[in-house]
C-alpha cells in the first residue's frame, strides 16, 4: 500500500532531496559569528569601533578648520572664547594655539588607530610564522628560536624604543618599526604553544605520511588552525600598541608636529588644564578611552565566540 522507503531519512521526492542537500552544516566561523553577535557588550563595542573608525576616516569632511590653521579670533583668550561651539565651527573648541581641536582629534584618532593596527599586523605575521615554525620543527631549532624570544623579552622595550627614536629619527616609520620589533614576542609564544598541541593530531600525521613538505604543512594545515587564537590576541594587541604609542607621544618623543596622536593631544590637554580649558583634555581622552574599551570588549567577545570548549 504505502510505498514509503525503508529508510525514513531517504528523500522520497526530488524536491525533498533538494531540501536535504540545501541544509547547510554550520562551520566554526558561522557558529562563532552567531555567538559573537549574541554577546551584547561585544556587539556594542563593535558598533562603537565602527563609529570611531568612521570618525577617524571621514571626520575631516565635517571640519570647518584644518588641523594646521590658527584661528586669530580666539587667540590669546582661549579660556573665554576657545571653548566648544558650533557658531565658529570649533565643535571641540581649540587648543592653546588656536588650532581646531576637532580636526586635530580626527587626525590623532586616525594615527593612533593606524599605529595599533599596523603594530598588531606585524605581530600577526612575524609572531605566527616564528611560533609555528619553532613549535612544528621542535628540538634544537625550537630551543634557539624561543631562547631568543626570551632574551628579547627581558629587554626593557620602552626604553629601547625611546633610544631608537632618539638615535635615528623621530619619524612615524621608526615608530612603526620599533613597535613592530617588540609586538610579536607574546604572539610567537602563544602560537608555539598552540602548534605543539596541533602537531600530534592525526591530520598532520596523515599529511606527513603522504609526503607533504614541511613548509606546506605549516602554511596549509597549521596556520589556518591557529587563526582563532591569533585573531583574539591580535585584537587584544591593538589597544596595547595604542597605549605604547600614546605613552611615547605623551612624552613628546613619538609623533611630531604637525602630525598628532591621541597620546600627544592628551599630553597637551594635561599641560593646559590649569588654565580652565578642560575640553582640551576631555575630547582626546574620551576618544582614547572609547577606542581602548571597544578593542578590549571585541577581543573578549571573540575569545568567548571562538573558544570551542564553550560549546
Amino acid at each position: 500500500m504505502a510505498d514509503f522507503p525503508l529508510n525514513p531519512k531517504q528523500p522520497a521526492t526530488a524536491a525533498m532531496a533538494e531540501r536535504v542537500v540545501n541544509v547547510k552544516g554550520r562551520s566554526l566561523w558561522a557558529d562563532a559569528r552567531h555567538r559573537f553577535l549574541r554577546n551584547k557588550a561585544a556587539l556594542a563595542a563593535l558598533i562603537g569601533l565602527i563609529i570611531i573608525s568612521a570618525f577617524a576616516l571621514f571626520g575631516d569632511y565635517l571640519a570647518v578648520w584644518s588641523n594646521e590653521e590658527l584661528d586669530f579670533n580666539v587667540m590669546g583668550m582661549i579660556a573665554e572664547e576657545g571653548g566648544p561651539s558650533f557658531a565658529n565651527g570649533h565643535y571641540f573648541g581649540t587648543d592653546d594655539l588656536g588650532r581646531d581641536l576637532y580636526a586635530r582629534t580626527v587626525q590623532g584618532t586616525r594615527i593612533s588607530l593606524m599605529v595599533g593596527i599596523v603594530g598588531s599586523a606585524i605581530a600577526v605575521v612575524v609572531g605566527t610564522l616564528w611560533g609555528a615554525v619553532a613549535g612544528f620543527l621542535g628540538g634544537r631549532i625550537d630551543a634557539v628560536m624561543m631562547r631568543s624570544v626570551d632574551i628579547l623579552m627581558s629587554v626593557p622595550y620602552m626604553f629601547v624604543l625611546i633610544l631608537l627614536l632618539v638615535m635615528f629619527d623621530r619619524s612615524i616609520t621608526m615608530l612603526f618599526l620599533g613597535i613592530g620589533l617588540i609586538s610579536w614576542l607574546d604572539m610567537s609564544r602563544i602560537v608555539r604553544g598552540q602548534t605543539l598541541s596541533l602537531k600530534h593530531k592525526e591530520f598532520i600525521e596523515a599529511a606527513m605520511a603522504i609526503g607533504v613538505s614541511t613548509p606546506i604543512i605549516i602554511r596549509r594545515h597549521i596556520v589556518p588552525n591557529l587563526l582563532g587564537v591569533v585573531m583574539v590576541y591580535a585584537t587584544l594587541l591593538v589597544p596595547n600598541m595604542i597605549l605604547i604609542e600614546s605613552f611615547i607621544s605623551f612624552l613628546g618623543l613619538g609623533v611630531q608636529e604637525p602630525l598628532t596622536s591621541l597620546g600627544a593631544l592628551i599630553a597637551e590637554g594635561t599641560k593646559t588644564m590649569n588654565y580652565g580649558t578642560l575640553w582640551q583634555l576631555a575630547f582626546p581622552l574620551f576618544f582614547f578611552v572609547m577606542t581602548i574599551f571597544c578593542f578590549f570588549f571585541i577581543g573578549d567577545g571573540l575569545r568567548d565566540a571562538l573558544d570551542p570548549k564553550d560549546r
Partner: peptide, 18 residues
Amino acid sequence: QVLPNFVMAPILILVFTL
C-alpha cells in the same frame, strides 16, 4: 584597564590638587 598611568596622573592632579 583603560586608565594607564599617563591618563590617571593628570586626572588625580585635577581632582586632588586643582
